[in-house]
Structure formats: C-alpha cells, structure tokens
Amino acid sequence: MPSEAYRALVEQLFAAPMPADIVEMREAYRAMGDAFPLLADVGVTKATLGGRPAEWLQVAAAPRHIVLLVHGGGYCIGGLDSHRHLGGEIARQTGSRVAVIDYRLAPEHPYPAGLDDLKAAWAELLATAGDDKIALVGDSAGAGLVMALLADLLRDEQPLPASIYCMSPWADLSDTATSRTIKREADPLASIDQLAKMAAHYAGDIAVSDPRISSAFADFRGSPPVFIQAGTAEVLMDDALNLAKSLADADVDVDLELRAGMIHVWPWFFPAIPEGAEALARACAFLSRHFADA
C-alpha cells in the first residue's frame, strides 16, 4: 500500500506537469529541488571539479570516502540546486563527502560535452582521493552518464569506483522498449515526446542507439557491483531491466530493485515520502557496504 503522502505526491505531479520548454523546465526543476530544505547539519562547500562548478556536501567532520553524484534531468536540465538535498542525505547516511557537478547540458552542449565533464571530474577526484574510495551515483540521465563513464573506464582499464548506484536510469535513448507504451498512463513525470526531444538534443549527430549514448547496451565486463532501483510506474522501467541484463550478461554483481507503483526517481522525493526515504536508506546501506569492503 503506498503511503498517503505518496498518493498525494503523484496526484500533485499529474495535476501540475512540467512545462514543455527547456528553459522553463530547468527553472521548475531547480525550484522543486530547492523546495526540499537542506537539513541544518549539512555543510555546503563550493568548488570546481573537472573545470566545472561543483559542490561538496558533507555532514561528518571526519568523513570517509567520496560519492560522485551525477544529477538527472534528461541531459538537458538539472544542476546543483536540484540535487543538493539528495547529496546531503547521501552524505549523512554514508558518512562520506558527496560531490555534485554542474556538467554541461544539451541542447547547448550535446554529446560528448557532459560526459567529458564527468570524466574530468572523475580524474580529478581520483587524483586527490588518497585512501578514500569513490562511488558513482546517478539518477535518470545522470545514471546513464555514470554507466557511460563506467564503460569507458572498463574499456581503458582505468581505476574503477567502489560501487555504482543508479536510480531509474535513462540508459536507452532509443524509443523501442515496451515500458514506453505500457507505462505511459501511469507515469506522471516522463512523457514520450519529451524524452524523444531530449534524446535528440543530447545525441546530436550520433545514433541514439549507439552504446555511447545508450549505455544500457555497453560492455560491463569487470564492473564493480551495481545497485539499480526502478519503479513500475515509469516509462523508463525497461532501461533498468536492460541495464541489469547487460550487467548480468557480463557477470557483474547487480542488485535490481523493482518497486510496484513507484514513479521515476522516487528516492529523489525522500523528504516528502516514506517510500523514498526507505529506498534511499537501502541504497546508502549498499554504498556503505562496498566502501567497507576491502
């Protein structure tokens, strides 16, 4: 049974869908994230990472390990403001330092700009992490980017993250998965038309099904453990399944959590809904466990 708060949230999202214009959408998303107040114990430090604006979110004064949080938003929207609350909570629950980066967005900056920013940030973190391990976390398009980075690291035999946590990954930018149509009525957040537009903005000249764009189909042999969450009320549900299958095909430890009736990236709404808080707690436990592993 979904909670009262969850039902109210879904109702509200259906009643007030996101604006269609990218610029307006950016502002709406920023405001939604901003509406979740940052708790009093979270310290926010401005920084640059990989040449891009970034923020460190930290609760522990004696932190251990690092999380690189790559925000979602269809490769076109989102930023530091939309994900501060999420980063702060991951910092609290894992005792780590969480970096959020403001990577370049499409359509102004199509592939590979955002991914390049992410790679540069990763390289800088790696160079300065010392004994700290680094985990990668992304939601939606952020998870797609994280998996694209991971595929490149594996291909180039680079040092790897301790673990990866994907919330409702958007990792298949082609329009063919059946969840796109089956879940259409149930999903209050992602519309097919909007997804197609954003995919085109990001892919630029490359085919949307190219694994560099649709990382669900990349080769993940040798990957560290991955935790994937998706809800059954999302048109992007199949991305999680396809990603999990690619990982399993490559003999990777993958935890796939599918929750009935949950919407796209519901853990992002954790301050408002118990389902989100519980999902995020499970994910943080996963991250902590793999930080602790030798």
């Binding site: 114990d41 522990a60 004064a61």
Partner: peptide
C-alpha cells in the same frame, strides 16, 4: 576537539530518530 564533537553529534543521530530534529540538535 573535532573528533570528540563528532562523537557528540553521532550520539544525536543515534538517539533522535527524526532526521530533521537530529540535524537541528547537532552542535557545531
């Protein structure tokens, strides 16, 4: 001092279940 205060703050997190309250109750 910082290590000791971290223990004091960790105690707040352990005892107070509501995260908003816990966050506010931590001395900095």
């Amino acid at each position: 001092d910082l290590r000791y205060m971290e223990k004091i703050r960790a105690r707040v997190d352990r005892v107070v279940t509501k995260r908003e309250k816990a966050a506010l109750l931590k001395p900095w």
